[in-house]
Amino acid sequence: MNRAESLSLLPLELRGVTFRHRGQTLLQPLDLRLERNGKTMIMGPNGAGKSLLMRICHGLLRPTGGSVRWAGNGATAETIRRRQAMVFQRPVMLRRSALANVRYALAVQGVSRGERRWRADEAVERFGLQSIAHRPARVLSGGEQQRLALARAWALRPEILFMDEPTSALDPAAIKAVEEAVDTFHGEGTRIVMTTHDLGQARRLADDVIFLVDGRLVERAPVREFFEHPYSREAAAFVQGDLVW
């Protein structure tokens, strides 16, 4: 491991980040700092810009204004990319076996063939997928696919994991598995950033909450404070389950 790789990517610093699309401002100028540790939930009503913000952080979208800066002096764009992972609402699996999907992700990162093999096996085992490791990934159930997506992300040993509503299409058992996985990642020192609509889930998992409404960052607070003493009127209404506009 060379020196550049041993330095942490975090904190992540967003300064004056905006996003405009077809004349509409989807994200107002926004400053945000994500520290080295913790589990951050991005919350807010539909269309608030939660997924958008996450995609900007992850580098899938380029902001139309402002800057996104990772620490990790001198880290190349490729190194930065390799040390993040993202789990989507609907996992996209390639038309090959579950295990081969994990190996593929490792191969893309340039992991040697031998190492790919054991790291993929380890990830599949870690997430309890051994019995379906050799089945085609795309015929697995939604919950199994999401666990596989988590195993694939875990195999990459990311420093930060983004999750975009990872449980919104799942049944309770599968939700539980995902939440346990979040703890697994967290326990191993991976920074978690996640969007969710589920207030209970946010209470269970979050250390702090980023609250967006209409593309504005309205509130950022530790989880207890957010739920018990929300600062803004919108957040107060939101945690009570009212509609926010």
Binding site: R55, H58, L60, E78, R81, R82, Q84, A85, M86, F88, P91, V92, L94, Y104, A105, V108, Q109, L156
Partner: peptide, 12 residues
């Protein structure tokens, strides 16, 4: 269209 974000996320 279907794979794009996932593949980009993996660094492909």
């Amino acid at each position: 269209g279907e794979y794009r974000e996932q593949l980009q996320s993996l660094g492909v």
